[in-house]
Computed example of a mutant assay.
Amino acid sequence: MNFTEYPVTKDNNMNTTTPTIAVLGCGLIGAPVARNLANKGFKVKVWNRTAAKALALVQDKLQACASVAEAVSDADYIVTVLKDGDSVASAMAAGSGHFRPGAKWLQLSTVGIDAAASLAQLAGQQQLVYFDAPVQGTRQPAEQGQLIILAAGPQAGREGVQTLFDAIGKRTLWVADEAGQASRLKLALNNWAFTLTHGLAESLALAKGLGVDPALVVDVVSNGPMDCAYFQLKSAAMLAGNYTPSFSVANAVKDSRLILDAARQAGLYAEVAGAGLHRFERALAAGHGDKDMAASFLAPDLPA
């Protein structure tokens, strides 16, 4: 597989005809994506199933729409930033008959292998040009326009698409021409992030269970070969009990299941991913679904 990385250029100069962008989904990632696009001069129309979230974004060059059809009717680009494949498919079905033929669809949600394929087929049926483009990064990188975009899609039209990616991210990795390849890469990356989260959470929990101050674990690792920014960020959250969501436990459960489905399709036995899913599910069952995935630390112990 060939990887081509395109440099990001932050240029506020727009073409004479400013493209209209429909952003479907105004959650932790979708809302800052819409704001950053508007701040770069694009005309942005937003829709969200919970209308209040869309209305909260209204500003110059950013319009809230009451329906998907209203949002996409004159859009040159459609950007989906929704929870899962079913949510994306449902939203796009609601726009059926209102899309501009040839409009470009940038699918930023993490949907897994099967949904990525079915959404690509849906794009063809709706006469849309499909770009499979899940993003790496959570709320803070999204707010700062520092997402990493994993993109797959046809060579034709990439230049315009890249302009949008530059408005929301610091780096774009073009993975392949074939839609779906970027979604596959995203699952591998999420598996790594979840593994780091659980390893840290379990290590701090083990120290606590053994009567050792968990902060000592962080102290020993800091500034050593095992240290990294992610370790510092999540350990600080766990020790402080601050679970303000950047990426929720509920979403982590969804993505962990997608990872295991992908592993099965690849003929792999992903025992670490399976154990991680069980830990997230325990945290979810304990009422921590809306908390940041650092709440893996709060997963209750299994009965003896």
Rank of each mutant, 00 (worst) to 15 (best):
G124L: 05
S109P: 11
V111I: 15
Q125P: 00
V111P: 04
G112E: 08
D114G: 09
F99S: 06
A123K: 02
T110N: 13
A120G: 14
G124N: 09
D114T: 14
L119I: 15
Q107H: 15
G112A: 11
G112I: 11
A116S: 15
I113T: 14
H98Y: 14
L108T: 15
A94D: 12
G97R: 09
F99H: 10
W105M: 00
S118D: 12
K104V: 13
Q107W: 07
R100N: 06
S96F: 04
G102I: 06
Q126D: 06
P101G: 07
G102M: 07
L122M: 15
G97S: 10
T110C: 10
L106N: 02
S118H: 09
A120Y: 01
H98D: 12
A103C: 08
A94C: 00
G95M: 08
Q121P: 01
G97T: 13
Q126E: 14
L122I: 03
G97V: 14
S118G: 07
K104C: 10
A116E: 11
S96Y: 01
G95W: 04
P101M: 09
R100L: 15
K104N: 03
I113G: 00
Q125H: 07
V129P: 04
A103T: 05
L128P: 07
A116G: 15
H98K: 14
L122E: 03
L128G: 07
G102A: 08
K104T: 15
G97A: 12
Q126R: 10
P101Y: 03
R100H: 05
S118F: 08
L122N: 02
H98S: 15
G95Q: 06
L119F: 07
A103P: 07
K104A: 12
G102S: 08
A115I: 07
T110K: 09
L128M: 14
G102F: 01
L119K: 06
S96W: 00
A116Y: 10
L119N: 06
G124H: 03
L119M: 10
K104I: 13
Q125G: 10
H98G: 10
G95P: 07
G95H: 05
Q107G: 04
L128S: 05
P101R: 04
S109M: 13
V129W: 02
D114H: 12
W105D: 03
G124Y: 00
H98A: 15
L108G: 03
Q127A: 15
A120P: 05
A123T: 02
L128A: 12
A116K: 11
V111T: 13
S118C: 08
S96E: 13
G124A: 09
H98W: 09
A115N: 05
K104L: 10
L106P: 05
G102P: 06
L119G: 04
D114I: 14
S118Y: 05
K104Y: 03
G95L: 09
Q127K: 14
L108A: 11
G124F: 01
S109V: 14
G95A: 08
Q127I: 06
G102D: 05
A123S: 14
R100E: 01
Q127V: 06
I113C: 06
S96T: 13
Q121T: 14
Q121Y: 01
A103W: 01
L106D: 00
S96Q: 13
L108N: 07
P101E: 06
